[in-house]
């Protein structure tokens, strides 16, 4: 393991992380609750949507729907994401390049 920072900061970091964890867990438990959510209590009851492949197998992962949404409703973010990746590529290439004299 890496050498940890000075003792003072060490303690503060630990305390901070633990406190954050306590807060988040407390928030989750108090809002969402620990019982499984019964479908009838949901705001909008949505039936399970299977996809049936050609060989008859059922697919509950919903990957076909993901693809469909990706190219219809969310196509603009998709294209923009491509541009972002291009920009990141060019940027990191430039910054990591060895400088010639």
């Amino acid at each position: 393991m890496e050498q940890l920072p000075s003792k003072g900061w060490n303690i503060i970091n630990l305390v901070t992380a633990l406190m954050l964890m306590a807060v988040l867990v407390f928030a989750i438990v108090s809002v969402v609750g620990l019982e499984p959510l019964v479908p009838s209590t949901l705001p909008e009851s949505v039936p399970i949507d299977y996809t049936v492949w050609e060989d008859g197998s059922k697919d509950a992962s919903g990957i076909e729907h993901v693809g469909g949404l990706l190219f219809t409703k969310y196509v603009i973010p998709f294209e923009v994401l491509a541009l972002i990746l291009l920009a990141a590529l060019l940027g990191s290439l430039y910054m990591a390049k060895k400088e010639d004299e």
Partner: peptide, 20 residues
């Protein structure tokens, strides 16, 4: 089905490990 809060708690713990 597991209660959704279990997954959320796991995600919270992972998040705090990352923060630390």
């Amino acid at each position: 089905m597991l209660p959704v809060s279990y997954y959320l708690i796991v995600a919270a713990i992972v998040f705090c490990i990352g923060v630390y």
